[in-house]
Design a protein around this nucleic acid. Structure first.
Lengths: 146, 146
DNA sequence: CTTCTAATTAGATATTGACCTAATCATATT
DNA sequence: AATATGATTAGGTCAATATCTAATTAGAAG
């Protein structure tokens, strides 16, 4: 499941409405168009977006398309967002360039002692100073300053 | 919480990256810009979107802004999506215009007997027939046809 | 096999969104 | 007070999205 595609699909008022309508009932495309006061072609395109996100499966029955919502896809998305919320803060490890601009002041093991590489990472080229003083505000990466 | 605004906020790759970075560490705007290879102004705009969606709270500390992710907002969103998946199919009630274009064939209490109003709702004006036959494919709303 | 009809696709247009540079703002430091 | 700096806002450009009408496709029905 491509999270971004699914999110984009439901991050639209019209498509969210289509989804909730289809969760409760079957609707043909024209019924959706009537209900939402949009052209059938417009609904069709929204349905395509929802389909391609894996949120709907369509089946043709007689003249009509019948769409079913893939509730499992919604549940999966909910899980992923929940997991996001569960990501924990990591400690500051200035020796690892990618971990530098980190965590709360009190948790930082190298408060006020970031090396040049770290300074450059935090503040960009030309912001770290080469004069070796390494003290005071400007020499610190963002996590070190009160 | 405005669900659509929150969804739009996270339905963007860059903003999702910002969010996951900030979940693990503090980053100043420039650090985010370096990390994601974008202009600071661009990051700032993304931060604004996330802030306005209630996903971040910012606090100025010294020179730097410190942003914290509102994990509760993410959890709330996850709950809402989960609730969405939990919406149940409702029975077909053709007597209620808004409930008509409904449910599975076997569950429909008025299979093949939709009245003109229902036909018009399902198929739009000019699709219901006035000849009173009311049988066969054309007289049925979408939920009645195999 | 021809006709009818629901749905989709094509093509056009207007709006929104993402990104940049430059200007401005707010706050620290001297 | 003057200056420096991190962040934000302003203004502009280009791409993506939402919507429409018109044309096409796919599948019944006669």
């Amino acid at each position: 499941m491509d999270k971004e595609i699914v999110l984009k699909a439901i991050a639209n008022d019209t498509r969210m409405s289509i989804l909730t309508l289809l969760l409760r009932h079957n609707y043909c495309v024209r019924a959706l168009a009537n209900e939402l006061d949009l052209a059938e072609a417009t609904i069709s395109q929204h349905l395509k977006v929802l389909r391609e996100a894996g949120l709907l499966v369509g089946e043709k029955r007689g003249y009509f398309m019948h769409y079913d919502v893939e509730r499992s896809a919604l549940l999966e998305l909910a899980k992923e967002i929940e997991a996001l919320a569960g990501i924990e803060r990591e400690g500051c490890r200035p020796e690892d360039r990618n971990d530098c601009p980190a965590v709360e002041e009190q948790a930082c093991p190298k408060k006020g002692q970031c090396d040049d590489e770290v300074k450059e990472f935090c503040h960009g080229p030309g912001h770290g100073r080469d004069d070796g003083e390494g003290e005071g505000h400007h020499g610190n990466c963002s996590c070190h300053k009160s």
